[in-house]
Design a binder for these strands. Structure first.
Lengths: 104, 104
DNA sequence: TGAACATATGAATATTCGTTCATATGTATT
DNA sequence: AATACATATGAACGAATATTCATATGTTCA
């Protein structure tokens, strides 16, 4: 069995590859990374996130929508506010792995 | 200490955020993901990678250049061929974490 | 040296993406 | 009801990106 066959066998199927790329796409924008760090351990309102991230309310809201569609964050409404938090434990692990990587 | 202060303190500095996003940017394209899976455990020539990935030689070469610039892959020349491999153990871990995430 | 092969590269193009601006929606307060 | 506040959303714009095509570079072999 040559290299090509072996590698082809172990290659994830097309759909998995796309999903995987899609997941990492969520983490490839600085604004989204900051947002996720905000709500990794505590939940936080959109306005507080906006302040910490240092972007506009609109930009943050747009990115939260993207993260929501990817099911990476969840939210609950409290009065006028909407409070977001990370909905998946893997996110922290993946961010940590990445952080470990760049710290070298 | 309120939420904003606490989160701001734990937020990676701007430069780290950008580097982190940059790292994940390398993994957010299906072609690059496939290429990395090809050379994760074995080294492989550009033409073999091209065949497995199912793209054009040019597209693969362009993406290998991107991965090379990000120092995620290394290469050696053998005759007419150039043989690439992953230069960082973290890549496999990060891909695995991502794969675990989407398998749910 | 010339032909064949392997890889790299530059320009062009189409698409995707993130932000901004203006405004809509929804909730609380007076 | 009117106002203020918090968030969401649509359109527009510019920047970034992946691919394709044509071709350049470099290597081997006859």
């Amino acid at each position: 069995m040559d290299n090509i066959e072996k590698v082809t066998e172990n290659m994830p199927v097309e759909e998995q590859v796309y999903e995987l790329a899609e997941l990492f796409k969520m983490l490839c924008d600085p604004t989204r990374v900051k947002i996720l760090y905000c709500i990794l351990e505590n939940e936080m309102s959109v306005s507080d996130i906006t302040e910490v991230v240092g972007s506009t309310q609109s930009a943050v809201s747009h990115q939260l929508r993207v993260l929501k569609q990817a099911r990476l964050v969840k939210y609950r409404k409290v009065g006028k506010s909407v409070i977001y938090s990370v909905s998946d434990e893997h996110v922290e692990t993946i961010l940590s792995m990445g952080m470990e990587h760049i710290s070298e």
